[in-house]
Amino acid sequence: MSLLLELNDHGLYCAAGDFYIDPWQPVHRALVTHAHADHSRPGSAHYLIAEASLPVSRWRLGAEAPIETIPYHKPIEINGVRISYHPAGHIIGSAQIRVEYRGEVWVASGDYKIAPDPTCAPFEPVPCHTFITEATFGLPIYRWPEEAAVFGEVNDWWRQNQADGKASVIFAYALGKAQRVMTGIDPTIGPIFVHGAVNNMNRMVAQAGLSLPHSTYVNEAPAKTDWSQALIIAPTSARGTPWLRRFGAISTAFASGWMLVRGQRRRRSVDRGFVLSDHVDWEGLMLSVAATGAERVLVTHGNVPVVARYLREARGIEAYGLATPYGTDDDDATAEESE
């Protein structure tokens, strides 16, 4: 008997509905959970995404890409298979995709988190028989601190740098993390500047209706800008590049879940690491799985064998790994990959 969703060499395929979820090869119909590049790849003949994802997905997939949008919670049918999108709390417009066929319900959650994030709709557990979960931070050592405490540290660091005459450069993924940082910090401390990649994403996110504190694109900064008062938000790719020279003396920081582990912090050789992730932590993962009531869990990217084994042995849930190439294109997931 074949499963409702199965992997083939193009991606996660639903034979009954003849569509793919987050395919990594071009296909005729792609249902996409969110706009990070490892989940949202160009070249497919038709895309279905959550409404709030449109501007960023448009940016990612190209102006010509045939994109159709769907509001959260609204069911539709594709070849007799019932589909609906539900907030995943990962980044703006991110969705879990619920697939129902002949009474059997699957949920492909993409990337998700349950921690609060003002830049996107909060994660909602969706009851299902089979739940597909990520496992980026699937180890019990990962326990996210309170967001308020983390932003308190960021604010303190920024103020201290101002006092020391140093520009504050924080590296964060351009889509998602950068906007979360902007909405989390105290914008009254000083001016905010952004790298071009972040600026582009900010524009897209604003089109999707999210309001961000005022920021200036670094290239449009007035001459004689006093960088020592500024917070500069840049993607990790800007680390160690000549682009940073314009700011003079700087203190650098990295916002990522990996910053919880000392070895990871030291390896990045940034001055500060702030623990801020767009992925679910261990406890959140276990709670989410329980909340879906799923009797079967498929685990993708990250600590796959660990989470699958723990669910089997400690929770008595049928669980196994699903080999996908996800987790290669955002800051959190790339800690152990190339940068």
């Binding site: 180890l139 019990p140 050592i141 000392r262 660990v306 723990y310």
Partner: peptide, 21 residues
């Protein structure tokens, strides 16, 4: 469980830190 502790320790690379986390 023990096996999960081994995985954690291996990801952190330090016992004192693993315990703290």
């Amino acid at each position: 469980p023990d096996w999960l502790l081994v995985e954690c320790h291996s990801a952190v690379g330090d016992s004192a830190e693993t315990a703290a986390l």
